Simulated scan of single mutants.
Amino acid sequence: MAQTAGAIGVVLLLVGALMFVLTSRQESRALNSELGQVLAMAEDVDDPPPGQVLAQRTAGTDAVEVTPSASPELVRVLDDALRRQPGRFDTDAGDDHPVRVLVAHRPDGSRWAVAADLAPLRERQGQLGVALLVAELAGLAGALVAAALLARRAVAPLAAALTLQRRFVADASHELRTPLTVLHTRAQMIARRARAQPVEQLTDQLDQLVADTRALGEVVDDLLVSAAAEQEPPPDTVVDLAEVAREVVASMSAYARERDVELRVEVEATAPVRGAQVALRRALTALVDNALGHVSAGGHVRVRVRHRPGCVAAEVVDDGVGLDPAEADRLFERFAHGTAGTGRRFGLGLALAQQVAQAHRGSLEVTGAHGRGATFTLLLPLA
């Protein structure tokens, strides 16, 4: 930005200097032309134009006639000028009084000289210089503003990229926490049972462990796709939301048992919606994780998928500490969290669930009260 403003300032300075020189030369030439006309038309020295003084020396004599109003110093300057060859020169007539003198010889042998006060010309040149300086300063200020705007516009893509990067890191840290916790819990359970049971009896649990690792990889893939094309609509494929709910509950059941919380699923036969299965599972997982974090030991969490007119509703109901209805809207803000609950919450899960709902042309609703649990409802159009 400083280099751009400096370059513009140099250009303005050069243009201003050129304008000053050209304008000053034009005014100087105009004054020379005026003095030439005065000498060509002068018949005597008594009535010169304002600000000018005439002098004449008749041929064959040394007598010099000078305009009566001329000062002694100016008379001396004109007397000296009449002794010179025809031409023009600038000099000082005393008391810092600059004058321009033009000398001409006529065919009859007489010599004429006219002196003009240069103070008005110098004053106009000074005013011109000040005006150009003010214009250059204003132009430089405008250049600085323009450079700042251009610089801001130039770095806007970089700022957007950094914002997207921070959001991706935040989303990844939150979204990977729950699958990793479930994976760690299941691995601990298998390790404990492996010491007391034959390996053949652990097949189902090992299959669940493999499924959890696959789900973890899908979460990473979904985060990458979301970061690369956050504004693109989800794919137009039919997804059974009831099956997604079963998968989420099966995946998080071990985590719920570890917290001594009953996690159950109640679904109808099928609940077809259109969208991305991985993203919908991410949203339901975030809602279940939020519920488990706000239910005490011995509590209950229900995942219900039901048909409603024109849509499918996936409800995550808990009997935990509840919530303040006044905080309901704020819970969907990124990094915001309620004042109740003992679970480790970073305020991203609900915001991401709402983002998924909106991307699927649906919505996310919440109801609840202090000490009476909460219900989060994901509403999606029926396929």
Rank of each mutant, 00 (worst) to 15 (best):
V249H: 05
A55E: 07
V305T: 10
R153C: 05
L224E: 10
R29D: 09
L241E: 03
S24I: 05
A191F: 00
H105K: 15
A211I: 01
F20V: 07
N32T: 09
G94S: 07
R345L: 09
E43H: 11
G347E: 06
A359W: 01
L31P: 04
T367F: 00
L378E: 00
D90P: 03
V15S: 14
V134Q: 06
S33D: 12
L382S: 15
F376M: 15
P233W: 05
V11D: 06
M1A: 13
P309N: 04
P72H: 02
L216K: 06
V77D: 00
E243Q: 15
E247K: 15
V248T: 09
V278T: 15
A353V: 07
L35G: 05
L350S: 03
R308M: 06
A70D: 06
Q358M: 06
F168W: 07
N290F: 00
F335G: 10
T339M: 08
A146W: 08
R344F: 00
L133W: 02
H97D: 15
R100P: 04
A245Q: 05
R274N: 08
D90W: 00
M19Y: 03
G275Y: 04
H105D: 15
R281L: 06
G16C: 13
R246E: 11
P49F: 01
L128S: 08
V265K: 07
A242Q: 04
Q3W: 00
V99S: 03
G139D: 07
G298D: 07
T4I: 10
R302H: 09
V101C: 09
R166L: 07
R166D: 10
R186H: 13
R57N: 07
G87Y: 00
G368P: 02
A2R: 12
R83W: 00
T67R: 04
A70W: 01
L132I: 13
L13T: 14
D236Y: 02
Q277V: 10
A55N: 10
A227P: 03
E266F: 02
A160Y: 01
L133A: 14
L12K: 04
A143E: 01
P120D: 06
D108A: 11
L39N: 11
A141S: 12
V356H: 02
A228G: 14
G9T: 07
P68G: 12
N32A: 11
A215K: 09
H360S: 08
E243K: 12
L287R: 02
P233K: 12
P309V: 03
D95V: 10
M41L: 13
Q358R: 15
A313M: 10
G6W: 00
V11T: 12
Q277R: 15
A159S: 11
